[in-house]
Write a protein that binds this DNA or RNA. Structure first.
Length: 259
DNA sequence: CCGGATGTTCACCT
DNA sequence: GAGGTGAACATCCG
């Protein structure tokens, strides 16, 4: 589950983990972690979970011993006690297939935490380096946002900067397009070219959009989402959307109202 | 069959 | 050194 919104929904589900104790941790797919399965199991056995945290797209499950870091890649999903953190994940599969389970954490009370991931892009960390990530996009202040955009030289495409997890954590491709669309800013605009009003507007839309997507239940619930296909029209003014690559990702935007 | 996909990383250019 | 590009990862889906 890709972006901040899905990870936050997963975090909320994991509040139910608080106070529960690990019986065993099975890294079913060793490929999912740089750690050895035995090392992971040893670090987690007997540990008691505390309140779950999140930074950007990284879910942080603290225990009284180590912190279990979960990153879901593009298609990973969290399942706790047979409850799926998110019901629908675009670009992933809705099916449940046993061999897509990459990690199983069994609890003494009979519950279990699982990571399901068809594409094997999800990653499991032990005591991850949280500070490699920028401040979380959901709680980013205007002051922090200004420094996210700040930079020397010519500047970079504003969308590329929004996607730079080391500068601001949590914004993925869908959220980036949705926010820029709502803010009326073209994705390729250089960071150095943004006026103060535009910076303020973009910051406001970033915070507001994340709140809306959270309430609606996912990154795919934005107003632009339905038009992200060839021939799509801007839901705002019905102008044909442009499709380009910005920051290495497919980008849908309205050349009429995004300037 | 082919191309593309809510992500990250790395090699290789400019 | 900063940015950009493309490939790789592995698999599903239209």
């Amino acid at each position: 589950m890709p972006e901040l919104v899905e990870v936050e929904l997963s975090r909320r589900l994991c509040i139910a983990l608080d106070g529960r104790r690990v019986q065993n941790a099975r890294l079913v797919d060793p490929h999912a972690s740089a750690r050895e399965p035995a090392e992971l199991a040893h670090a987690l056995r007997g540990a008691t979970f505390a309140s779950p945290r999140r930074r950007g797209k990284l879910l942080l499950l603290d225990t009284d011993q180590h912190t279990l870091g979960l990153h879901f890649g593009m298609t990973g999903r969290l399942v706790l006690d047979d409850e799926w953190a998110i019901e629908r994940l675009v670009y992933s599969s809705q099916r449940r297939v046993d061999h897509w389970i990459r990690l199983i954490v069994e609890l003494f009370d009979g519950g279990r935490l699982e990571i399901h991931d068809p594409r094997r892009l999800a990653r499991v960390f032990l005591d991850p380096d949280e500070d490699a990530l920028g401040p979380d996009a959901a709680t980013l202040t205007l002051k922090q946002f200004r420094s996210v955009l700040a930079g020397r030289g010519r500047g970079v495409a504003v969308k590329a900067r929004l996607l730079d997890q080391a500068r601001v954590a949590g914004v993925g491709n869908l959220i980036a397009d949705e926010v820029l669309w709502r803010a009326g800013i073209a994705p390729g605009r250089l960071t150095t070219s943004l006026s103060d009003d535009e910076v303020r507007g973009l910051h406001r839309q970033l915070r507001a959009t994340i709140g809306i997507l959270l309430r609606h239940g996912g990154s795919h619930t934005g107003r632009l989402m339905g038009s992200r296909l060839p021939g799509g029209l801007c839901p705002f003014d019905d102008h044909p959307l442009s499709v380009s690559v910005v920051g290495g990702r497919t980008t849908y935007w309205c050349p009429l109202h995004q300037r």
